[in-house]
Every structure is written in structure tokens, then in C-alpha cells.
Design a protein around this nucleic acid. Structure first.
Lengths: 218, 218
DNA sequence: TCGTGCAGTTATAACTTCTAACGAACGCGA
DNA sequence: TCGCGTTCGTTAGAAGTTATAACTGCACGA
């Protein structure tokens, strides 16, 4: 978060207030979702009146963008912490689920319903690419499984998004499936769509992971 | 939507205004998302001033709930129209994607970021069950594929959510994977997370579907 | 035809984001 | 140590939002 190594006292104070604002924002988001985030309420909690907050953030959008940035960084950190020496698919998957369950609304801030007009700044998409690269690293080492699919061939022709990653086309395919399948089960679980169905979402998640690594059917 | 067979002129007028309100609401949601839905703006578009709208809906929440209900009904109808005589997994999957692409925000209204406090009324969860039943029908007929997984055994013990459906445990497993995997690719595509990556999301969707039906690896 | 009930109105309260103008305090340079 | 300037926080206010209350007038139904 905001550089704590700031030189001047003013800068340090400013940085501290900014993180305090973000802390309160995360509390609000965790309990009521991002759409219910109120700058006024945050200011009141910090003991200052409404507009004072605009000294620190240009507006609601800028604050939320900063929260999205932090969320991406947090996920990238979680991946890095989970597998320091290169990556392992299973470890990554467990780290992803743990990170998501820790704060579901933080997950939805990244992977939830998008606001139609919004475009993320470049530095955020860069962090997203770093996360994708970690997944690609993990999938590159997986054993090949079955014949080449039409998608594999297509991905061989459109591998620019992998940003020069040396993984074979099957690895790119596997990375995309890793992303989409785990996101699929995770987001439905976090959204409560499995509530009352009785089964354990962790086992479904594990089954999808097994299928990905080749230890399960489908 | 609201019963067009209403007897009295008043009831017919009321029903017509209600659907007009919903039509405007859908327009707003499609262009700016559900969080930007403004009752005031809708009223102005209909040529009446603000509070008049409260004669038709108790508030924003009730209107949105009604939209969610209609969205669920629309998906159930799309499934029914796609496979009138029993269900076919591939047909269902194509119908799902077409329905989602038709209005991405409508998809997110159902499967997007949930509001933490919100609980859907029973009649909505009933429609959701009907949709699940259609998927189960389609998955029950699929050929078995590989040995029994731990999840299969677990689902055999927790098949209450299937509401007495006669599908074998492997079928339940397949139905859940159908749901989570297609939702995974679809929601990431609709949210724009594949933007700029170059590959065709339709092929990824097709590959996931192939894996589900047993014609692809993974 | 007459009266009841419903539609739509304006006024108002309590919110929200955000801008503008002002005062005060803090810290840096002289 | 003493200003002076930057920055912080304030109040005031505009333009929105949801939602309620009270009032008017029309239309439907008996």
C-alpha cells in the first residue's frame, strides 16, 4: 500500500490517512458489497466531515479503482507466497480458494459483475498478466493428456496474450481451463448458489482440480 | 409478464404501466448495469414525476427482484424452447451462451455479484430448480466416463437438491460441472476478462463443452 | 348519477457525490 | 525564530437519489 518510506511528515500522515480510508472501505465492502460503499460514511467513521475525504481521493471511482488494484496485488502476493519456487497447479488452486473465502467481496471486486463503461488502468492489467503468468508456469509442466484439440490449434495461432511464455499450446489451454473452471465453481459458491444444496463445495472444487491435473475423469 | 388477461380496465392499465416500467429498467440495466438503475429516471422517461412510480413498485428492491424473476423465467423459457422434447447437453449449452450474449447484464443479474444481505423469494428459487432439473435431464443420459470419483460418492449421500431426480451420482456430478464450467467461461467472457487476448471465446466454450460430453480431453 | 378508490401531483426528509470558498494549522526556508 | 505558503479540514451549497406524506382530480363501478 501507499509508500510508508515517505520522507516528509506530511507525506507520511497523508499515506496513513489514505490507508485508513481504504481499511474502512474494505469493512464496508465486506459487509454490504461495493455498490453500498459510501464516502460520507467513511469520513464520519474517521471523525471528519464529508468533503475532507476528497483531499485524499478524487472521488468514489478513484477509491474503488485503488481497492481493485490492492485486491489484484493481494491475489498476486497470495500466489507468490503459496509457491515461492516456481508454481504447482494444486497449490495455486488451494491458495486461490483460500484467498477468495477470506473475503468474498474482494473476489467479486475483481471477478464479479463489471460496470459497463469501466476500463481498468494499465498498471492493473499488468498485475492481472502477472497472475496469468503464474498460472501458465504451473500449467506448462503438466503432462500432456489426450490428442490435440481444435482449441489447441487456435491458441497456437493466438498466443500473443501469453506474452512470450514458452508453454506449449496444450499448456495455454490448460491455463485457461484452470482459470475458467475454478472461477466457475468458486464464484457460484461465493454467490451462495450452492446454499441449501447439501453437498460440500470444497469437494466439487477438488473434483474440478483433479480433472485439470489429470487425476479425475472429465 | 404481468397477466394480460386482467378483467377490469384499471387492472389492464396497471399491468401495462408495470411492464413499461420494467422495459425502461431493462434498457438502463443493459447500458449502465443494475447498480445504476434509477427510479427517478424511469419515471421521467414515462412522463410522470418520481413518486408516482411507487404506486406500481414498493421500491427499488421490489423492482429489481421482479427483474431477477423475469430473467430466471426468460432463461427457463430459452431452455424449454431449445429442447422441447427432453434435453440435449450441447443444445442446452448453446442456448445458454446465446441467451447470455443477448443481454450480458441480464446474465449478471442472476449469476453476478450478490448483495450480501439479499435472499431471493421462494418462487425464484423454484424457477432456479426447474432450470437445474433441465440440466439434470440432459446429463442423466450421458455415457459414463471413467471410474467413480470421491465427489460421486459424496453426491450419492447428498442428492436431496436433485429433488428426486433419478440420475446416477455421475449424472449429478456432470450436471454440476456443466453449470460451473460453462458459467466460468461465460462470465469471464461477458465481464471482458478475455478482451485483448486475441483468442475466440466461442472456441474455449466449445472446448469446455466437448470435455463435458466426453469428446475432448480433460 | 354519485361516491369511492386509485393515479399522479407537490412538498419534504434524509440520504448520496462532489464543488466552492474559507479558516486554520503545520512545516519549510530564510 | 519568524513569516509565508502549502495543505488540511471546515461549512455551504448544488444536483442527484430513494422514499413518505398529504393533497387533487379523474374514472370506474354500483
Amino acid at each position: 500500500m501507499a509508500n510508508p518510506e515517505a520522507k516528509t511528515p506530511r507525506e507520511r500522515y497523508r499515506a496513513q490517512v489514505r490507508t485508513e480510508i481504504k481499511d474502512r472501505a474494505w469493512e464496508q465492502i465486506a459487509t454490504a458489497g461495493a455498490s453500498a460503499l459510501s464516502l460520507n460514511a467513511i469520513a464520519k467513521q474517521l471523525g471528519m466531515s464529508g468533503p475532507a475525504l476528497y483531499r485524499y481521493y478524487a472521488g468514489r471511482d478513484e477509491l474503488i479503482t485503488e481497492l481493485v488494484r490492492d485486491a489484484y496485488r493481494s491475489l498476486a502476493d497470495a500466489f507468490r507466497a503459496a509457491s515461492p519456487s516456481g508454481a504447482d497447479v494444486t497449490t495455486l488452486a488451494h491458495a486461490l480458494r483460500a484467498w477468495a473465502l477470506e473475503d468474498p467481496q474482494r473476489y467479486f471486486l475483481i471477478y464479479g459483475t463489471p460496470v459497463p463503461g469501466y476500463h481498468a488502468p494499465d498498471d492493473i492489467t499488468a498485475i492481472a498478466s502477472e497472475i496469468m503468468a503464474t498460472i501458465l508456469d504451473a500449467c506448462a509442466g503438466l503432462p500432456s493428456n489426450g490428442p490435440e484439440t481444435p482449441l489447441d490449434a487456435h491458441l497456437e495461432d493466438h498466443r500473443d496474450w501469453a506474452d512470450g511464455h514458452p508453454a506449449p499450446a496444450a499448456g495455454l489451454h490448460r491455463a485457461l481451463s484452470f482459470w475458467t473452471r475454478l472461477h466457475g465453481t468458486l464464484s457460484l459458491e461465493l454467490a451462495g448458489h450452492f446454499n441449501g444444496m447439501g453437498f460440500d463445495p470444497a469437494l466439487l472444487y477438488a473434483a474440478e482440480l483433479d480433472a485439470l491435473t489429470g487425476f479425475g475423469k472429465m
